[in-house]
Design a binder for these strands. Structure first.
Lengths: 154, 154
DNA sequence: TCCATATATGTGTATATACTCCTTTTAAGC
DNA sequence: GCTTAAAAGGAGTATATACACATATATGGA
């Protein structure tokens, strides 16, 4: 007998997709980023920009490619992000000895904004630390580092 | 005596900023998202779109606000993301009984693309599962859920 | 020296993200 | 029923992200 139950288009059970590591990471990233952004708004910068300013402050005059490796960030993404910081006068970008490279450093204003932003960042970070236990947060950070490792090495 | 060592502008040690939860989440998210995006490219969609298609498939006809809550996503972000899916013909959006609402459902093509994408997603997910231990991944997911909780409840 | 290749970076384009402000529609008092 | 507040959603603008492609400079071998 020929009826519709034959060769049904059996779709998978998509329920397990809610465990998707990527989905959960994006979700969490959005939620957590907003906490930092809210705190840092008072300093006129966002979390992304804060992290970049810190990285530039610590890595001294640093090339785009080097900075991209530090931040595990696509190089072209970084180019656009640096444009914004430069337009805001927070960093300076100049050609290096190797004239292919462009080296980023903080401007005086960048240093000042970073100094103003730091205690605000501390508050956001403390909120996280106080809400989770120190140990759990540590475990979490290690887990994230592992994820980066296994997704970079491919 | 008046010398420059008096009232120095003592900048903080920014080293601890490398432990920033937001920074590490963004970093990890970028790296992991690229794994899923690479796998899903064969189906013509990205990880973000896959997750949305799954959510719409499961939540049936669902309003923008409802979907935004499910995905822990800003409502206006979701509007833009749905526009893309609609333009690609993967979903349909129609007004509900309450004419303020707009309800999203998968189109036939959306269902087909999702079915094609599912095994690709499974591969990416399996890569993560096999690289970390099942237990570690579970702990990590719980940690992420906790982070969402403490950053949403403010 | 000159050329092939590798390296460093930028551009065009598209998606993802979210804040602020605005419009439409419903629901709640009265 | 009318008015007003609440709810749902979109638009303008700006930043964040990354892939494919193009450009400029350096380097190494013939």
């Amino acid at each position: 007998m020929h009826h519709s139950a034959e060769s049904p288009i059996r779709e998978p059970d998509y329920g397990c997709c809610m465990d998707c590591t990527g989905f959960n990471l994006r979700k969490t990233m959005r939620s957590v980023s907003q906490l930092y952004d809210d705190m840092l708004r008072q300093a006129g910068i966002r979390g992304t920009q804060f992290s970049l300013l810190v990285a530039i402050r610590m890595a001294g005059p640093v090339s785009v490619t080097q900075l991209a490796e530090i931040a595990v960030m696509d190089r072209t993404t970084l180019t656009r992000n640096l444009e914004v910081l430069q337009k805001q006068g927070l960093i300076r970008v100049a050609a290096g000895q190797d004239r292919r490279t462009r080296l980023a450093t903080l401007s005086d204003e960048g240093r000042a904004v970073l100094a103003k932003a730091y205690p605000l960042w501390e508050q956001a970070q403390a909120h996280i630390k106080d809400s989770l236990s120190e140990e759990r947060l540590q475990t979490l950070m290690e887990g994230l580092a592992n994820l980066v490792k296994v997704t970079q090495a491919r």
